[in-house]
Amino acid sequence: MGRKWRGTPLTAADIAEGRVATAEWRPEAKYAWSAGESIGRFLEELQEGHLVGRKCDVDDTVFFPPRSFCQEHFVRAGEFVRLKNTGKVETYSVSYLDTDARRLEEPVYVGVISIDGAAEGMGFMHFLGEVEEKDLAIGMRVKAVWKPKKERMGAVTDILYFKPV
């Protein structure tokens, strides 16, 4: 078959050493994302040391993290509901990669934690701590470890990590 498979492969050095013409650009945009009604309240409550969900009035499902509408019934969500500081590890990973794909000397443990009092399986992503790698398990019960109150700023990082209970 006379197909032409084309393309001109380059090495990283071809570019670094200027063997081919290139142009560079560094975008400098700064963003400010509005948290919105539900996540705004979620962040405020985090600063106070509480996890909060929000209820769908049609069938009493408690969303976590809270949101302003129910994606199933398509109605405006109802009351905010304070939840417990405890939950369950739905899944996890032991990561040697940082956000820029650089290698970490010591891995971070990250998981999805579903929160007690919210609908089954509704959780968020967070770190796992005060635990040995060999003891990590899907289904393990965990509890939030908070930053000291004066260091909290209304962010998911107001919780340091979740530890086994």
């Binding site: 570019i15 142009a23 560094r26 963003y31 996540i39 705004g40 962010a155």
Partner: peptide
């Protein structure tokens, strides 16, 4: 005042000609 979160989308682009 509304609650917001600030950030950027940092990258350096190198375009081949």
């Amino acid at each position: 005042e509304y609650r917001r979160w600030e950030g950027d989308m940092e990258a350096l682009y190198v375009y081949t000609a």
